[in-house]
Measured scan of single mutants.
Amino acid sequence: TETRTFDSEEEAKKAQKEAEKQGRTVTITRRDDRWEVRFD
């Protein structure tokens, strides 16, 4: 599991799309003013 933090939802969604192309499961969580993206 890898976790990355982004400043914008746009960036988080971009990372999510990339990871899903690779067949990974992605979870996006809102953390205050940041977006946390978890790759499984």
Rank of each mutant, 00 (worst) to 15 (best):
T27F: 04
A19M: 12
T5P: 02
R31F: 09
S8F: 04
V37C: 04
T25K: 13
T5L: 15
F39N: 04
D7N: 09
K21I: 10
T29G: 05
K21Q: 13
T25I: 12
K17Y: 14
I28E: 00
G23V: 02
V37F: 02
E10T: 05
K17F: 13
E36F: 07
E20V: 09
W35S: 01
T25Q: 10
K17S: 12
R4V: 12
A19D: 03
K17A: 14
G23L: 03
Q16D: 01
A12L: 03
F6R: 00
T5W: 15
Q22S: 11
E18I: 09
E18L: 10
D32E: 13
T5H: 09
R4M: 14
D7M: 10
E9G: 02
R24D: 06
K13L: 15
E11S: 06
V26C: 15
F39Y: 13
V37K: 01
R30Y: 10
D32H: 10
R30G: 03
Q16N: 02
R38I: 12
R30P: 05
R38A: 10
R38Q: 10
T3Y: 13
A19Q: 05
A12K: 00
T3H: 08
T5G: 03
R24P: 01
A19W: 12
Q22H: 12
T3N: 06
E36N: 02
K13D: 05
R38W: 05
W35V: 01
R24T: 06
R38D: 06
Q22V: 10
F6M: 02
R38F: 06
T3P: 09
K13H: 09
R30S: 04
R4Q: 11
T29I: 14
R4K: 11
K17V: 14
Q22I: 10
I28M: 04
A15P: 00
K13M: 14
T3R: 08
E9A: 04
A15H: 09
R30A: 06
I28R: 02
R4A: 08
R24S: 06
D33N: 13
D33M: 04
K14G: 07
K14E: 13
A12E: 00
E11Q: 08
K13A: 08
I28H: 00
T27K: 07
R24N: 05
V37M: 05
Q16T: 06
K13T: 09
V37G: 02
T29A: 06
T3W: 13
E2S: 11
V26E: 00
D40M: 12
F6N: 00
E11R: 03
G23M: 03
S8I: 04
E2N: 11
Q16L: 11
D7W: 14
D40L: 13
A12N: 00
R4D: 03
F39K: 02
K21T: 10
F6W: 02
K14A: 15
F6I: 01
V37A: 04
R31M: 10
F6S: 00
D32F: 08
A15T: 05
S8K: 05
K13G: 05
T29R: 09
K13I: 15
K14C: 15
T27G: 02
E18Q: 09
T5Y: 15
T25D: 04
K14Y: 11
T27D: 03
T25R: 15
R24G: 04
D40W: 11
Q16W: 08
A19K: 02
T3C: 14
